[in-house]
């Protein structure tokens, strides 16, 4: 009886009216299940997310019988890892993707951060409108954005230079709103009295920005940059419209769908996963290291 009384509502529901003469074991089991329901669901979700990744990593060690990869695991090999650049154009596409994403990330982060500061810290004519308009690129379907960008580039006479520059321009455009929104969220929550305190303590405008404002805004800026990078790196739709003859990594993958995937694609996939995983772990460790 005592155990029934101390049980939570969820446990009581499973045991129901049997509690009076039932052996104490059964309600305990219900309770045990209830306590761990969240854990079970969590594990299921993790499995769901990790199965495709595990599949990619496994296939990166596969030795397909033909030239292109198969869905079935045939034989184990390290070979794919040592011959990443063998498939025609794969490494060139990766290089281009990195160049595009890094450039676009830097531009979007700098511009977006400045914009966020302006929108949060200064009141000027048209601030409310700017706050609204900044959401438009996020809301526009990518296909529409890509198509209209292509039309615009062509009508501006850019068709001969379609490639790196036009891709970067397009990527900065759609990354910008995400950066502004992310940095703004951080700035809004920031206490402006901290900057006043810095000024009171002999820090001039630049020192205040450098020593107080920037460090406090940094987590938001870093998050925005990571977001911009990942949006830019795996963008396919807009890039497809604005790339001209250039081939970024997502375009390469799409292209090889027709010819058959080289198994090295799985190596690249695994590497991307491992690198981002390492970054996340490293960031977490760095955060914990500080007292």
């Amino acid at each position: 009886m005592a155990t029934t009384l101390t049980r939570g509502a969820s446990g009581a529901a499973t045991s129901g009216g049997t509690a009076r003469q039932a052996p104490p074991r059964k309600p305990r089991l219900g309770r045990w299940m209830a306590d761990r329901a969240v854990l079970f669901i969590g594990i299921l979700v993790l499995v769901y997310t990790f199965v495709p990744i595990g599949y990619i990593i496994a296939l990166s060690f596969n030795q397909p019988s033909g030239r292109s990869a198969t869905a079935a695991f045939e034989a184990f090999t390290w070979g794919n890892w040592s011959t990443i650049c063998d498939p025609d154009g794969l490494c060139e596409s990766i290089r281009l993707s990195f160049a595009v994403s890094i450039t676009a990330t830097i531009l979007a982060t700098v511009l977006g951060t400045l914009m966020a500061f302006a929108l949060v810290r200064h009141s000027f004519r048209g601030r409310a409108a700017s706050n609204l308009v900044i959401f438009l690129p996020m809301a526009t379907p990518e296909v529409v954005m890509g198509a209209s960008l292509l039309a615009m580039f062509v009508s501006l006479g850019f068709d001969s230079v379609l490639g790196f520059i036009t891709i970067v321009l397009a990527h900065v455009l759609f990354c910008l709103s995400f950066v502004v929104v992310t940095v703004k969220a951080r700035l809004v929550g920031m206490d402006s009295r901290l900057e006043q305190a810095a000024m009171d303590l002999y820090a001039n405008e630049w020192q205040t920005f450098r020593r107080v404002t920037l460090p406090l805004a940094m987590p938001g800026i870093v998050a925005a940059a990571l977001l911009a990078f990942s949006l830019s790196f795996d963008d396919f739709i807009v890039t497809n419209f604005t790339a001209g003859q250039s081939v970024t990594f997502p375009l390469y993958v799409y292209g090889s769908k027709l010819k058959g995937f080289p198994p090295q694609l799985f190596v690249v996939g695994s590497l991307m996963f491992l690198v981002s995983f390492a970054i996340v772990i490293g960031g977490e460790l760095w955060r914990r290291r500080r007292p």
């Binding site: 006043q196 305190a197 009171d200 303590l201 002999y202 107080v212």
Partner: peptide, 18 residues
């Protein structure tokens, strides 16, 4: 400007740098 004044403040809300 505040940083040019020989004045320091203990703020009501502390305003410590987190």
């Amino acid at each position: 400007r505040p940083y040019k004044r020989p004045v320091n403040t203990v703020f009501q809300s502390y305003a410590l740098f987190p």
